[in-house]
Design a protein around this nucleic acid. Structure first.
Length: 278
DNA sequence: CTATAAACCTGCTGGC
DNA sequence: TGCCAGCAGGTTTATA
């Protein structure tokens, strides 16, 4: 999935559509999608519950239920939450929630990587423990980011992908953030100057906000709850633009592999680290 | 601690 | 047109 912008966009939609509604039934057609409790208990504990709140943490969707439990959903690579039009069966539906207004919200997921779980409110801090700061919070300042990176003798891009360092950034927005900041992905996390950290903070937030604004990035599976694709692909500057001209300087965008992930950058706007300095 | 590879799954794209 | 290799928004686990 879906990274922070794709989850945030859907969370905002679900907030409008679900709060106050009651889930009258839950049907699980792929038990592997439920990571806890067992599918049987999952079904009975969700059924009859009114939705009291919807929010997002990192790449997780949190749907609070009246009984004091929270439905936690991670879409991973190809998971979507889509309102089923006309009561039909959408492709790759793994879990279906029927609402008291007759609508059906389906969790679809071709690759079966996505997971849903039910967690007691009291256990939520434990379940979400280990996640880094939210990059769109006011508290995510340059000094905070600097502190997260300072002790890390680690490749910068790998650090950005680590959810314990910063929550919600994935492969697309890591590349976009680094381009915006003019920093090479192979730099060492701890080698950034304060100025570079400040630029990176702006780059991260700018890339994420642009993504949310355009309904997320769709080049494959991401859809919103009404099955509509996001348009942010048209606004990406380096991701998936290998060989195409840099929007700033015209150089060909390069692609390398970092931490097993395709990584895109401009060789001129994001100068390579010196062998010694990292 | 950091890094790397593999595993979990299925579908799509590009090259030959 | 057809087949195959490679790639894909993420995370976890095993292994150096």
């Amino acid at each position: 999935m879906p990274e922070l912008p794709e989850v945030e966009y859907v969370a905002r939609q679900l907030r409008r559509e679900l709060i106050g509604r009651t889930i009258v039934a839950a049907d699980v057609s792929w038990p592997g999608a439920i990571s806890g409790p067992c599918p049987q208990d999952f079904r009975t504990r969700v059924s009859g519950q009114q939705v009291t709140d919807v929010c997002r943490r990192a790449k997780l969707l949190l749907i609070a239920l009246a009984a004091g439990e929270v439905l936690v959903i991670h879409r991973r690579m190809t998971g979507n939450l889509i309102f089923v039009p006309g009561g039909g069966e959408p492709p790759y539906a793994r879990v279906r929630f029927t609402l008291d207004d007759g609508r059906v919200l389906a969790f679809t997921d071709p690759r079966k990587f996505g997971r849903l779980m039910l967690v007691a409110v009291a256990d939520l801090p434990q379940a979400l423990g280990g996640l880094g700061p939210e990059p769109l919070d006011d508290a995510f300042t340059a000094p905070v980011l600097a502190a997260r990176l300072a002790s890390r003798k680690r490749i910068l891009k790998a650090a950005l992908l680590d959810q314990a360092v910063i929550a919600g950034v994935g492969n697309i927005y890591a590349d976009e953030a680094l381009f915006r900041a003019g920093i090479h992905p192979l730099r060492t996390a701890a080698s950034l100057t304060p100025q570079e950290v400040a630029a990176l903070r702006e780059g991260i937030r700018g890339a994420l906000l642009t993504g949310i604004e355009h309904g997320g990035t769709t080049f494959g599976r991401h859809r919103d709850v009404f099955d509509t694709a996001g348009t942010n692909l048209d606004h990406l500057k380096v991701y998936r633009r290998t060989g195409q001209p840099c929007v700033r300087c015209g150089s060909a965008i390069a692609r390398i592999v970092v931490a097993q992930r395709g990584t895109h950058y401009c060789p001129r706007c994001q100068p390579a680290p010196s062998p010694s300095a990292g």
